[in-house]
Each structure stands twice: as C-alpha cells, then as structure tokens.
Design a protein around this nucleic acid. Structure first.
Lengths: 244, 244
DNA sequence: CGCATTCATTGATTTGGGTCAAAAAAACGG
DNA sequence: CCGTTTTTTTGACCCAAATCAATGAATGCG
C-alpha cells in the first residue's frame, strides 16, 4: 500500500536551476561551496516536488538517495508492526535528509506539507562528499546538532507529563517556525502548525485525545488561543514556560 | 555539589602511550589515520582514568574537551530541574564523546564503570579535525549511526509499554555488550549489566519499581534468569523477541 | 564480624493518560 | 449547497504504571 506512493513519476522531476538564487543556500550543506563545486553538485542532483502525504524513503528499505529540503516540512517516522508510530524528527528548509555512506534508511521520510527538494543519488553524493571536506564538515555540524536535538527530545518522551510535553512543544514550535521562516506571520507568538492533532500526538508520544484535551485546557486557562485548528497564538509565554 | 567531581586532579593524567597497541584503535575515529597523523593527534591528547560515578562534562556548561572511550561505559544524561533524569545515550569503548565545533555540552557525561579515555582539548581537536578529512569522515559516520540509534530509542520511549521496553532493552544489551567486548563472557545469552536498576529505569523512561517488577516477571515466566543482581541470562530469546 | 548504608523487591493504592464511544466541527466533492 | 468523509472534541470508563510504604538483600567499612 505504501508502495503506491513511490516517486518515480518523471513529471515531478525538474532540472536543477540556479543554486545562486536558492533561498536556503546559505544555511544548507552547500553553503561553503564555491561556484565550481556548486556546479559539480548541481550536475548530480535535481529539484523535485513532493506532495503532502507522499514518502521519499521507507524504514528498512534501501535508500538510494539523499536530499535537501528547499521548502516545506517533512517528518521522519519509526513504527511498530501493529501500526503505532513515533515521529522521530522534523525536517525544515535547509535541513538534510538521508543516510550518506549507509544503505538502508532507518526511518520513513514523508512530506507533511507540499515540499520542494534538491535530490541526489546517494552513491554519487557519497563520492562527491568524500572528495569535498568542506561539505562533509557542514554535514557533520548539522548531524551533531540533530543528534543533540534528538537527545533533548528523548528527555521529553521519557520523562515529561502530557501537559509538560504540550507546553514544550508549543514553545519549540514558536521558535522553530519563526526562525526557519516557514510562515509569513511575523509575530512568533502566532504561528500555523503544519501538523494535525494526530501528528502532534505522534511527535509527543501521546494519543490524539490527550493532545486535544491539553489544547483545550490551555485555551480555557487563557495561555493560548486557537483561532482555527492549525493556528496557535501564545498569549502567556511565561506561564507556558512554567508548565514546560 | 556536582562541582566536587570535577576532574582536575593531575594524578589522573597519564601520558598518551602508543596508539598502535590500542585495543579499540581500529574501531575508533583514529582508525583511518596513518602513523604520522596518529602521532600528531597523540601530541594534543592524553589518556585519563575516570572512576565510576564521576562526570566528565555537564549539561549546559562549556565543554572544553572531547574524548574517546578506550575502556568502560559512560552515560549521557539530560535532566529536568526537579531531578527527573533521562539517559539519552550510552558510550562504549571506541565511541566518541563531546561536541566538536560547539561550545556547550548538551548533556552530562558520567562514568558508569571505571573508564579509560583518550582526552583532547576541544579547540586543538577541532583544528586537527578540520585539517584531516579522513578523521572528520569517520566522525560523521559515527555521528550518523548514533543519530539513527537515538531515533530508534525515541520510538521505544514514546510508544512502547513497560514490558516491551524491558524486552527490547535486554535484547539490545545482549548484542551491544557482546559485540563491544565489554565482558569476557563468550555466550551472548549471559551478560553482566553495567547498570543498577535505577539506571535501567533512567534508560527506559520508567521507575525503578516497574523495572524490578518486569525483571521478576520475566524470571518467573522462565524467559530469563538473574543469578545475581547485575547478571542476566537470556533463556528464551524467541519469547523475549516476541515481547519486544 | 556486625552495623550502616545502599540497592532491590514486593505490596497496597492512586492516578494520568489510554481506550472506547459518540457528537461536533471542518473540509471535500459533486 | 448539501451530503459525505475526515478531523477534532468531549465524555465515561479503565488500566498500566506511578507513587507511597515497607521489607529484604547486598555491599562496604570501622
């Protein structure tokens, strides 16, 4: 069933256009490359659109590609045989996807919103990376940051209560979405979640019902407002931080 | 209070002796270095003993060093203000510790057993790494593996029940401790945990009582035996795998 | 060796969050 | 615009694991 979502539709494939105009160029792994290097990298990759809900790679399967997110949000998920799912990572513009120097993907990578990517065949990318230390350096730096973030999330998953999880989540989202420019809303106190309630539950290791109840509780207590189901307005950041 | 554990006791500092005799040399980040490179790395680091319970760096504090574990087991922990603690990583011989190109440590690093380390001042290590792509490459590879492992652990923390957590833990330990040669016991079905019950609880996001109850349950059901409080014998790996 | 301390087990009780079920509200499609 | 589908909210109930409280076993030390 998941197989149906495979992306081998050539109509989605677009020639890689000028990196120099790329909005996330200075934050992505290609940031430290010079013009000629960028050109070489250009030749091995291409831009690709991927629509909301579609997956780019699957847990346990061969991953023959790596990618950079240009625009949109993706999720990394691990799941159990019975369908329980945990979102183990979120991928924002300028973030890197995939496992260089590995064969199988440890997680499923799925678009949460329509997403624009720079895609590279893994083997070609591996070769390029091995011979371009500055790129590997950037990749290492990003990976180390991701690892720290993942470990911070482990504390939340293992030790925080539902209300603490929700509060931490809202605060992190308000920062992340602001910093990454995923929305046009200037005020970081108001932001649009790219996730539905079930996805929030899958991020926090909760059920959808618990997420919903916590949201309405915070709303009733006046710490947040929820104008529509995707928008969150933080009314009392202080109080929220105390809960986190 | 934690400050008392700081390692500035010069008696613990030993000159780095010959890497060529190092037991973990071929698995650690120094694996791909040639003799002269190894010699240069040698000059910036030194070996150090650290005893069980002592910490090498603290969450949120400046980390002016990075290290390689030669022998022993260490833990990475994150904690909340009220003392709740989560073990977010385990560090075995040949594993790397610390955050190159970063300033503050995101976790506390503490010895679980008496540990032997190769310690490097961070700034000197950073410089060395930047000019030695093969070392950075190795470091990247290790970091990517750690990230995959951390994310797999997030699934356990967020979605597994206590009995599933315990079963997964025992199976992983039997593999990890065998593969890393942390014990002399040849049979991977019998191994000695380097952790007490509280630490197992901190790894799994449970309480010590729940861990204890699950252990005794598995013993009563004949899936494992517990000859003494640190030793685990897996009697029915199949059944344990079904629980995991 | 015996006392003290730490660590682990076991039992009784509580509770946070899960499950099950239904209603309400949005979003979608013709 | 209306019926269908999906998503979210709300309520009633339950249970796994936490908490609280002892007891029992190891370990360490004078």
């Amino acid at each position: 069933m998941l197989q149906l979502h495979r992306l081998n539709n050539p109509s989605n494939v677009i020639d890689m256009n000028q990196c120099s105009a790329c909005l996330i160029r200075n934050r992505a792994i290609c940031a430290d490359l010079d013009a000629s290097e960028l050109d070489a990298l250009n030749k091995i990759g291409h831009q690709q659109q991927i629509e909301r809900g579609r997956s780019l790679m699957w847990e346990g399967e061969d991953a023959h590609l790596v990618a950079n997110v240009i625009d949109g949000v993706m999720k990394l998920t691990s799941s159990l045989e019975d369908g329980r799912e945990q979102i183990v990572g979120l991928v924002y513009p300028s973030d890197f996807i995939g496992r260089p120097y590995g064969t199988t993907s440890a997680q499923t990578v799925t678009a949460i919103t329509d997403t624009k990517l720079c895609v590279f065949p893994r083997s070609a990318f591996d070769d390029f990376a091995k011979s371009h230390p500055r790129l590997e350096h950037k990749l290492l730096d990003k990976t180390l940051s991701e690892l720290d973030r993942a470990r911070q999330w482990m504390l939340l998953l293992g030790r925080k209560s539902a209300s603490e999880k929700i509060a931490s989540f809202l605060l992190e989202m308000s920062e992340r979405l602001a910093e990454k420019g995923c929305t046009d809303i200037p005020a970081r106190s108001s932001f649009e979640l790219p996730f539905g309630r079930q996805q929030v539950a899958d991020i926090l290791g909760l059920t959808i019902e618990t997420v919903s109840r916590q949201f309405t509780r915070l709303k009733k207590q006046g710490l947040i407002d929820l104008p529509d189901r995707r928008t969150v307005v933080i009314l009392d950041r202080e109080a929220l931080a105390v809960e986190a």
